[in-house]
Simulated assay, not measured.
Amino acid sequence: MAATVQQLLAWARGLGLPVLEARMLLEHVSGLDRTRQAAWPETALDDAPAARFQDLAQRRVAGEPVAYLLGSREFFSLEFEVDANVLIPRPETELLVELALERLPADAPCRALDLGTGSGAIAVALARHRPLLAMTAVDRSEAALAVAGRNAARHGAAVRLLASDWYSAVAGERFELIVSNPPYIAAGDVHLEQGDLRFEPRGALTDEADGLAHLRRIVAGAGEHLAPGGWLLFEHGYDQAADCRALLAAAGFAAVQSWQDLAGIERVSGGRLG
């Protein structure tokens, strides 16, 4: 006998799955949105979607991120494909996009570089909001670049994607803006073994050192790739702002500053070249 919406939700509740998450997963496998689930709980599902729902529910209870189970996550009002090869875009990273857009002209050609693009969320958001922008995004992971490519195509964003270990593939090129959300979690940080981070690509989370190794490389190399007056902006950890400002100042950047996210945490730092 086919299971109904009500029966499946009750089963999921027995597993300890929050109702909202259960309804999201049920919508994903059945196409029944949450309004229809609530209005017609007696609706029966075929065996295949019911089994798929049960599989996803059990994986979620085991800790797998909802974004990976659904295959997508919203960022900057755009829907992005995500899988286990890329980080899940987070709301606090929208601050980096906002700060970048403030520094990119809306009515003139400009060049920007996204280092470690992952899903392409930052690069695609920038390209969508600045049609004249020549956007380049790099990542050392071919699997991540494939996801980024699909996201760029999905949103009609003109983004040049390159396989690169930070600046290696853009030798001799200069940009008016460089942005990055690099791996900045220290190797011994307990958060790496908690929540969604357990399932995300470790190489996109930590430098396996003190958390500043990649940030040092990004800051040190930026001078060779920024146009005069160009900006470097990057996300970092909750306790790294002072260290990041010191790195920027030592590298000769002007207007060095850190910006707070909506939680009041200094989340992005940056400066202007010259």
Rank of each mutant, 00 (worst) to 15 (best):
A3L: 15
Q6K: 13
Q6P: 00
L8Y: 07
L9Y: 10
L9F: 13
A12W: 04
L15N: 01
G16W: 06
R23Y: 07
M24E: 15
L26A: 04
H28I: 06
H28K: 08
S30F: 03
D33F: 11
R36V: 03
Q37E: 12
A38K: 09
W40N: 12
D46N: 12
D47A: 14
A48S: 13
A48Q: 14
Q58A: 13
Q58M: 09
R59I: 04
R60F: 12
V61K: 13
V61H: 05
P65R: 02
P65H: 06
L70G: 03
E74D: 13
L78G: 13
E79Q: 11
V82D: 05
N85L: 04
N85C: 11
V86Y: 02
T93R: 03
E94A: 02
L95V: 03
V97K: 01
A100V: 02
R103P: 00
A106H: 12
D107M: 02
C110V: 14
R111Y: 01
R111P: 11
A112W: 01
A112V: 05
L115P: 05
T117C: 15
T117R: 10
G118R: 07
S119E: 10
S119L: 04
A121Q: 09
A123K: 06
V124W: 03
A125F: 01
R130K: 09
L132I: 03
A134C: 12
A134R: 13
M135T: 10
T136R: 12
T136L: 08
A137V: 08
A137P: 08
D139T: 14
D139H: 07
R140A: 14
E142H: 09
A146L: 10
V147N: 09
A148N: 08
G149Y: 00
H155Q: 12
H155D: 10
A158D: 11
R160K: 14
R160Y: 00
S164W: 04
D165G: 04
W166V: 15
S168W: 00
G172D: 03
E173D: 12
R174V: 09
I178N: 02
N181K: 05
P182A: 08
A186W: 11
H191Y: 07
R198V: 15
R198C: 15
P201I: 08
G203F: 03
G203L: 02
T206V: 11
G211E: 03
L212Y: 01
A213R: 03
H214F: 05
L215N: 05
R216C: 03
A220Q: 08
A222T: 07
P228A: 11
G229R: 02
W231A: 03
L233W: 01
H236F: 04
G237N: 04
Q240F: 02
A241C: 07
D243V: 06
C244M: 08
R245F: 00
A249F: 00
A250V: 07
A251D: 06
G252N: 10
F253H: 11
Q257C: 12
Q260N: 10
L262I: 11
L262M: 13
A263T: 11
G264V: 06
I265E: 08
E266Q: 10
V268R: 01
S269P: 09
L273D: 04
G274W: 00
